[in-house]
Computed example of a mutant assay.
Amino acid sequence: MDKLVIVVPAYNEEESLPKSLRILDNVLQELIHKNQVSVDSKIVVVNDGSRDLTWKIIEDNAKENSHISGINFSRNFGHQNAVIGGLTAARKYGDVFVTIDADLQDDVNAIPKMIEAYHQGYDVVYGARSARKTDTKFKRWTAEAFYALMNKIGVEMIPDAADFRLTSGRVVDELLSYKERNLFLRGIVPKIGFPSTVVYYERKERELGESKYPLKKMLGLAWDGITSFSIAPMHFVLALGLLTTLISFVMLVYTAIQYFIGHAIQGWSSIMVSIWFLGGIQLIGLSIIGEYLGKVFNETKGRPRFIIQDNLLSDDAK
């Protein structure tokens, strides 16, 4: 019987985590009772440097329930690194893995469906939203625009799927072989391949605590996704540069014609606009190039993506 490990990244989730762990444990116990997963299956919560009582809640639950364990990062390393850290620490303790956020906005009732699909031979089962009813119009529009953009630049992604997914052990092994620091798992997992399918569910509104992905972080994640898989922004700057050069050439021809027919050139406004326009393009180009260089710089340093301060999994093995 395959051992299931449910990896739960958590950051400042003291309000929602107790209830989330109860719900996840009920789902796990039901799967065990139906002989769909091994009795040695676990829930592993990754405390991503929380500043509240999240780690204490994990420790207390682990003492009371042998199916619950956790790891504690030395500081906050970010959601994507928390997912990778949890999979890295839990790999030798499981055969199949499900990742789900601690707020449980993703429907836990999709997990049994994922396990069923896994038994049918699928190595990756994506959890995707059937609708975006809980989103604002702005968030819905930006999400649709982001998926369309990623598809346009050649990045394979599952529409409306985040980091709620099931992966088999061999897929996790391949995923952990990706050593890049600039992580965008929604784009990396589809690149691995292996048989995959999608389970659809309705995403709920957060009941307790605050969202850990405000607009600023969502934009940052989107930018990481674009720069991790494509040099399209640099192509855009090149196209903009060529367009600007063409416009400059047209203006040069226009100025020469005006000179030869004897018309006075007013000029000052157009010159100032041109200077600001070209200056802006240059700054944008330098910023985009600098962004890529910065990511290369971070990759070459080879610093760890996460540091585990406490590991209850290793204590469980003793």
Rank of each mutant, 00 (worst) to 15 (best):
H235F: 11
Y122G: 08
I158N: 08
I289S: 10
V253G: 01
L252G: 10
D40P: 00
Y292G: 06
V83G: 04
D173C: 01
F277Y: 12
R165Y: 13
E202F: 08
I43P: 01
Y213V: 09
V27F: 03
L286R: 14
G209K: 02
A10F: 05
D2F: 04
T255W: 15
W141H: 14
E14V: 02
Y259P: 02
E207T: 11
L17V: 00
N298M: 12
P190W: 07
F249M: 13
S50V: 02
N182R: 11
L252V: 14
V296P: 08
G285S: 14
K56C: 08
W276L: 15
S130N: 12
I6S: 07
Q29G: 07
K301W: 10
S228N: 13
K113G: 06
A143D: 15
G262M: 03
K217Y: 14
V46Y: 08
Q282D: 14
N182I: 08
G279A: 05
N35K: 13
S130T: 13
P195A: 10
G193I: 05
V237G: 07
T255F: 14
I257W: 11
T197C: 10
A148E: 14
A128S: 14
K139H: 10
D107C: 06
V37H: 00
M157S: 09
D123T: 04
N311Q: 06
R186H: 03
I275W: 04
V39M: 10
Q282H: 15
E59L: 05
I188Y: 07
